[in-house]
Design a protein around this nucleic acid. Structure first.
Lengths: 341, 341
DNA sequence: CTGAAAGCGCTTACAG
DNA sequence: CTGAAAGCGCTTACAG
C-alpha cells in the first residue's frame, strides 16, 4: 500500500515540504491557518512519518536492545517486563534477544545490535561468558550500555545489581539461626559473578559462626535446572548423612531438592532446612513453601532502563557520563522450608 | 564516535561509492582485486552498514513486532522464545510489547508498530479486546499479520491455533471416564475466543454423555490468577457439596484450586478430580501433580513466525497471499490430580 | 511566516 | 569492470 509522505501533503496544499514538516512538529513559526490545514489533511490521509527517514536524519532509532540468557525464566521475564514497560513510557521500543547461556550466540547478538544501531544495550551475561571482547566493543563504539544481574565487574559500565554476597550471607545466617550445623551449598556455574558472590557469602557466614568450611559440601550446577536439584539432593544425602541445611543458588533448583525430599520422605525443615534465591512464583505455592531471597526483578528492569536513558540523553547533549551502579535491596522471605523453630 | 561510511572507504581507496557498495555486497561485476581491497579496509575500519539508510532505501527493517498480553506467563514466554529464535535464524529481530490485557494499551501499541514500520506483526489479543478497528488498520495498510492463541475469528489473517473445543472436550471426557458425575468449569473471561471455545468443549462433552448442563457450575475468571483459583475452589465446595470434578481454564488457576484443597484437606482426585490447561512447568512438580492439556507453545511461536515470513516474502515479490490457518495438536497429560482409577 | 537547498548513507538502473 | 546520478523521506540552518 502507498504510504502518505510530506511531499504529497505539500503538493495537495500547494505549500512547501518544509512548512508541512514544521506544522506537524508544531514549530512556532507557522501560521495557525497553515498549521490547521496541514494537521487535518495529515489526519485524513493517515499520515505517519517514515521512521526510516527520521532515523537516518536524527541518527537515533528510539529503540534499545536487550540480551538475556533465557526468556522462559521467572526472574528474567519479570525484568523484561520492567524494561519494556519503562521503555514504552519513555517512547522507546525494545528488541529482545536470548543468548541461551551461550557465549557464541551472545557475541553474535551484540554484533547484530551494533549493526542495527540501537540507541543503547541492556544485558545480562550468559553463564559461559568469560571473554569481554564483544562487550568492550560496545563501549568503544560509545553505545550506552547497562549491565544487570550477571555482570562483568571489570567492565566500566553502569550496572544494576543486588548485593549477592550480603544476601547469601543472610540466607545462610538464617539457616544457622534455625540451628543448622552442617550446611551444604548448591552453587551456580563457575563464571557468573553472582554465583561466585553467593558462594563467598555462604563461606563468610560459616566463618563468622565458626563453622569450618568443607568444599565437599559444595555442589556446582552446570545448567541450573530442576533436575539438578533432584540429583544433587540425592547426592547430598548419600554422601553426607548429617547435613541439616542447604542453601541453593536459585529457587528452580531448590524446588527440585524439595521435590526429591518429598518423594523419599525426608522432612523439611525438620531434618533438612532449605533456602533458595530469587522468590520465584512457584516457591510460595509449593509444599512445603520455600524460603528464599526476594530479588526485585521488575524494579531491576526499570532501574536498568532508567540508567540507560540517562546515558542516552547525556550522549545526545554531549555531556560526559560517569557509569553508575545501582544496588537494589533484597529481603529474606522465610517460609516453611527453613522454619525449624 | 564517528562511524565509518562507504564514502570514507571510497575516498581512502580512490574509487567510487558505487563500487565500494557493490564490492561489499559481493556483486559479480567487481574485480577481485578491488573487492579484496574494499573488504579488507572495511574490516580494518570496523565498517558496518548504516541500517537507517538501508531501511530507507530498501523499505524494510528486518524487524517484526510482537504484542502479547503478558510476558510473565509460562505459555507466553515460551511463545516469545520460539518467535525470537526463529526470527533470528531468518535474519529478523523482534520488538516486544505487552498489552497487559488492556485494549487501550493494545491499540496504542499497534499504532506504535505501524508507525515504526515493522515488516510484520504477530499478536495475541488481550482479554479486553472486543473491538477490531486497530486490527483492521493493520490489514488495510497491508502489513503482514499473524494471530495466535487469543485470536479474532472474523479477522481474515493467518492464524496459529489449537482446537480449543476439541481439547476441552477431551479433558472433560477424561474426567467423565474417571467416573466424575458432576463437573464444574472455571472458565476464562468473556471475550477471548479460546475461553469461549473451551467452554463450548466442556458443554459438548457433558451433552455427549447425557449429563445435564448447569450454568451454576460455571465460574468466570476476571483476571485468570492463582488467587481466583483459591476463591472459586472455596465457592464451588460451598455451593455444591457434590461436585466431583473441575475443568479449569488454565494451570495457574488450577494450581490455586489444588492449593486450597490441600489446605482444607479435600482429597484430589479421590473427592474431586481436577484438570487444567496449558501444561505449565509447575504442574508437573506440584503435589498432587496436575493433569492438563499440553499446548505446544514453543512450536506455536515458530509456526507464527514462519507464517509471517511467508507473507512478508510474498509481499516483497508482489505475489498474492491467502491467509493460512495452522492448527497444532494438543495432548492430554494425565497426572495425579485426575486419576481416580 | 514561508521555502529552497543541503544532507543523512545507502542502493541500483544506467552509461560508458 | 567502474562510476555519476537519482532518489528513499525526512530535518533544519539559512535566506527572504
Amino acid at each position: 500500500m502507498k504510504e502518505t509522505t510530506l511531499k504529497e501533503i505539500a503538493e495537495t496544499l500547494g505549500i512547501s515540504i518544509t512548512t508541512v514538516s514544521k506544522a506537524l512538529k508544531n514549530y512556532p513559526d507557522v501560521s495557525l491557518k497553515t498549521k490547521n490545514a496541514v494537521i487535518s489533511l495529515a489526519k485524513e490521509l493517515n499520515y505517519t512519518p517514515n521512521t526510516f527517514a527520521v532515523n537516518l536524519r536524527t541518527k537515533e532509532s528510539k529503540t534499545i536492545g536487550l540480551i538475556i540468557p533465557e526468556i522462559v525464566h521467572h526472574f528474567f521475564s519479570n525484568v523484561i517486563n520492567g524494561i519494556v514497560e519503562e521503555a514504552e513510557k519513555n517512547g522507546y521500543l525494545v528488541i529482545i534477544l536470548q543468548s541461551n547461556e551461550s557465549l557464541a550466540l551472545e557475541q553474535k547478538q551484540v554484533a547484530l545490535l551494533i549493526n542495527k544501531r540501537v540507541d543503547g544495550i541492556i544485558m545480562s551475561l550468559s553463564n559461559e561468558s568469560n571473554d569481554d571482547a564483544h562487550i568492550k566493543e560496545i563501549l568503544e563504539r560509545g553505545i550506552p550500555f547497562v549491565q544487570f544481574d550477571k555482570i562483568s565487574k571489570i567492565i566500566p559500565s553502569s550496572k544494576v545489581i543486588i548485593n549477592d554476597q550480603k544476601a547469601a550471607f543472610n540466607a545462610v545466617q538464617h539457616l544457622i539461626d534455625q540451628g543448622c550445623k552442617k550446611i551444604a551449598h548448591i552453587r551456580g556455574p563457575d563464571n557468573p559473578q553472582n554465583a561466585i558472590d553467593r558462594f563467598i557469602g555462604y563461606k563468610k557466614a560459616l566463618e563468622k559462626n565458626n563453622i569450618p568450611f568443607d568444599s565437599k559440601l559444595v555442589y556446582t550446577c552446570q545448567n541450573v535446572t530442576f533436575q539438578e536439584g533432584i540429583d544433587f539432593a540425592k547426592q547430598i544425602i548419600t554422601e553426607h548423612t548429617d547435613v541439616d541445611g542447604i542453601f541453593v543458588i536459585t529457587d528452580l533448583v531448590a524446588v527440585g531438592v524439595l521435590s526429591y525430599f518429598n518423594e523419599i520422605g525426608i522432612k523439611v525443615p525438620e531434618q533438612i532446612a532449605v533456602i533458595g534465591f530469587s522468590n520465584w512464583f512457584i516457591s510460595q505455592v509449593f509444599t512445603p513453601k520455600l524460603s528464599t531471597v526476594d530479588q526485585p526483578s521488575h524494579e531491576m528492569g526499570i532501574a536498568a532502563f532508567d540508567l540507560l536513558l540517562e546515558e542516552i540523553n547525556n550522549k545526545k547533549d554531549k555531556k560526559a557520563f560517569a557509569p553508575k551502579i545501582v544496588e537494589l535491596e533484597t529481603n529474606i522471605v522465610i517460609r516453611e522450608s527453613s522454619k525449624k523453630k
